[in-house]
Each structure stands twice: as C-alpha cells, then as structure tokens.
Amino acid sequence: MDYVYYPGCTLFTKARNLDECARKAAERVGFTLNEMPSWNCCGAIYNTTSDDLAAQVGPVRNLAKASQLGDRLVTLCAACYNVLKRAQDMLNGHGDALVRDRLLAFVEEPLVQPVKVLHFLEVLKNDIGWDNLRSRVVRELAGLKVACYYGCLMVRPAEVLSFDNPENPQVMDELMGVLGAAPVRFDFKAECCGGYLVVNRRDVARQCSDRIVENARAWGAEAIVTTCPLCQFNLERLPAASASPLPVFYFTQLLGLAAGLSEHELGLTSNTPTATEFLRAKGLT
C-alpha cells in the first residue's frame, strides 16, 4: 500500500529520527510513505482568529497540492496532523464560506477533492490492522512498561479530529500491546506538555511536563511513548535534573524495534543517552 506523506518541517530537522525511522518501520509492516513534492510548513499551530486568513494559507496550500495526488494524506507529527485536519474541516464547509473561497482563490493550485488527513497510527490500526501487525513482530517488547502520551494535538478539538476518546485515548496503548509491551494506566495521557511555551516560559512548560512524567512514573511506567517532536522534547529534556529522567520514545521507534530495525535505524542518537541505555538494559538492542 502506498500513501501520500506530509513530513513537516520539524521532521526534516530536529526530529529527523521520527521521519526516517517511521519510513523504514512502515516498509517493514507493509506500506510505503511517498513524500508529497514541494510541501511547505503547515504553520505549526492552527489559528482560530476569525479574520486571520494569512495563517491559513500554509495548510490550505498543502491540502490543495495533496488533493492532486490522492484523497488521503498521512502525517506523523501531532501538530501537522492537527493543523491540516482542522484546515480540511474548514474547507469541507464547517467554516466561513467567504474565507474559504478567498483562501482557495489565493493558492496557486485548485483543491480537486477533499483530502482525508490521516495519522500514521490510523493507518496502522485501520488499514494494516492489529492482527496483521502482530504477525510482523519479530522482537517482542515483552514486559516493557510504557506510558502512552497523546498530548493535546492528537485528540482536541475532538469534534473535528474524531481521532480517539479525547479524555482517554487508546490507539497507542493498543499498538503497544500488539508489540508485546505493557501500556500502563496513567492520568495525564491527554494533558498539555506546555508546548511552545518552552520558547518564552520554560518554567511553565517544565511545570506541565514534570507533572506528566512524575505521574507516569508513579503508575509504574519505565518509558514514555509519544507522537510529537515537541512533546518528546518537553517530556525528555525539561523535567527537573534531580529526578532520574524517563526515556521518551516516538511510537515509531518502538514499532521499528519490534519490526526488526537495527539500533542505528531507530535514530536513538537524537534521544537522550538514557533511551539507548534503557533499551540495552532491557536486552532489546
């Protein structure tokens, strides 16, 4: 199976390990990500101010381009997923018609069909299927206690994304179960990590991230799994230095590990050294 894929800017720079590992893991489990040509930044955050059209141009241009290639677009980064899916919802007629017409007239290519914005996790669950995926596992992550952290961008606004239960999402937990790991219950799987407040209010972002990590630890997690480069950064790097950090993996790294990718292919060098040590200590690499 082939999918049109939108990587997004962070996956081409600081989160290269999310992009590269995901492409390889996808091949291992039976699908191919074809990067769409000449994509641009999605804007990283959806703008809700009613009269701000300029901020919508980025995602709308991407969707118009993607619509030439197919009716589905796969994303990996939680922010890209959120922004593109909300922009598509606006274009589908849930927004101001005048705004929509002006935006579509502004971008150089027409939107030839509505684009269904998918997350990699949705492809795994709905198109590949858990049973099929289970048969591709060559290295069970037996006994690995992980806290699956979804954050805000994967689940809210729930009525637009309709991705999973906004208060208690499950899809990543199901995936970890299929890979042989043991997802733990914890309280803050959809709580904000502080996001971009890290730029000017690192103290506030740290407070948010600390609470999530400590709660995951209290519920017995040995590692955290996430989908978003910014969540990964905040949860891994911000918590107070005094506490022993929990390794924070992308779900694609654990998928790749279970599907037989080599340690090098997982791109662990971009994580903290704790992540590599942790997997070694568990006998998984």
């Binding site: 997004g8 800017c9 962070t10 720079t13 600081k14 989160a15 930044c41 804007g43 990283a44 955050i45 703008n47 901020a55 980064c77 922010a79 996001g195 971009y196 407040l197 890290v198 730029v199 000017n200 480069p229 910014l230 950064f233 790097r237």
Partner: peptide, 18 residues
C-alpha cells in the same frame, strides 16, 4: 542555545501566537 535545542515547531507556533 535555545535555537540549537528546541524543535522548530515550537518557534513557529510561539511566533505565530506571540
């Protein structure tokens, strides 16, 4: 140091919002 360390999406979002 912040530019070196923090993911791009945070700058993009922060500048968009603030």
């Amino acid at each position: 140091p912040d530019l070196e360390e923090i993911p791009q999406q945070a700058f993009m979002a922060s500048f968009r919002k603030f």
